[in-house]
Design a binder for these strands. Sequence first.
DNA 1: GTTAGCATGTAAGGAGTTACATGATTTT
DNA 2: AAAATCATGTAACTCCTTACATGCTAAC
Lengths: 213, 213
Amino acid sequence: MRSRSDVLDLAILGLLQEAPMHGYELRKRLNLLLGSFRALSYGSLYPALKTLVERELIAGVDTAAPPPHALSGKRARIVYELTADGKEHLAEILGSASPASWEDEHFDVRFAFFGQTDTETRLRILEGRRTRLTERLEQVRASAARTRERVDEYTLELQRHGLEQVEREVKWLDGLIDNERDSGRERIGRGRPATSDTEGGPASPERGIEERR
Amino acid sequence: MRSRSDVLDLAILGLLQEAPMHGYELRKRLNLLLGSFRALSYGSLYPALKTLVERELIAGVDTAAPPPHALSGKRARIVYELTADGKEHLAEILGSASPASWEDEHFDVRFAFFGQTDTETRLRILEGRRTRLTERLEQVRASAARTRERVDEYTLELQRHGLEQVEREVKWLDGLIDNERDSGRERIGRGRPATSDTEGGPASPERGIEERR
DNA sequence: GTTAGCATGTAAGGAGTTACATGATTTT
DNA sequence: AAAATCATGTAACTCCTTACATGCTAAC
């Protein structure tokens, strides 16, 4: 009875670290976080919560009938929060930078919780990710060169577009890496993102991502 | 005993239409085609081939022991090719433009076989895809606006980057759509819009499409 | 003569989805 | 009063991967 996706577990723990929440709300936040739109189903979420409770990493409090006030009005909903074990477990994961961290499935979630990760680990993950992507570029370019002639134009265009997307992602990473290097060099604190930021708009962390346009 | 992924079936049929092939080779071509790098495993491919044979859409010929010459040297390998039914089935799929065609999982494969698809269908798929993506942009932007304040900067940056990628894809589609419109109209003058996609980027977009053939 | 790559398959299991089942609360 | 949306869960099923099992052939 092991598993239930590492990624989902981490996403849940990370979100609960920010604030206790019930399942339904968790799902919405999760959908914004992961892949940004693919809707995670309840059929995945609730069983995952269940096993996390069994492992005592989170605890659920049913807000329906709090012994003192019998009629709090609200209907049954179970608000989950991290246990001490859960916090420890989360900190352990967020402090690590294993090769898995920069694979497709893990990277986005790890990145989303960079606010709870120290600069050094952030850098190692970003660099690992960058290496992973450039390896991939090499590989695809190599095998594309080998099959060049027998491929029709649309297949070729699809490949070209795919490569361009990856190249773009590498540039994005370069910006982020520069950013982290700058911030790592001036302060030694834990966590804390680089920018003082806050001014309005969907502005990107200053120098990081301005390429294009 | 239905199914075995539509997408995989289509990819196999489409590739076999181009040329008969054995499993091992099919896999390599498939990996270039789909997602461009994610390696499809034999555990998926061979069972899929098996059911396609059972459905009589393809037929496999074992090249190991051709009755006439007992020692052709080559080891056992099964070359698959489309049956008449298979060709018909493929043509039917490639002629359709159902909503499924422009969903994430299907679109790439449909696009890869545009060479075997008529202009009108190509256009409908490209436009459907474009609509799908812009809907998604709207949706994400809307829910992002609602949660604006309580999201930290890294999560925000991730979302911003995600949106940018989708926007880029829409522009790519715009270029392709213009291209198809021009060719559908059997190229009358009309200095083409040149698809404002480019900037410093490496690849020269379009151009490749729509020549030779 | 041994490593690397060609070639074909099966069994078990992981990670998720859809569809079902149920009911409360809020909005129109 | 109806419809939407909040809220929680389970069962069955899908699609895929990993690991196993087997053996040939080319190159070093």
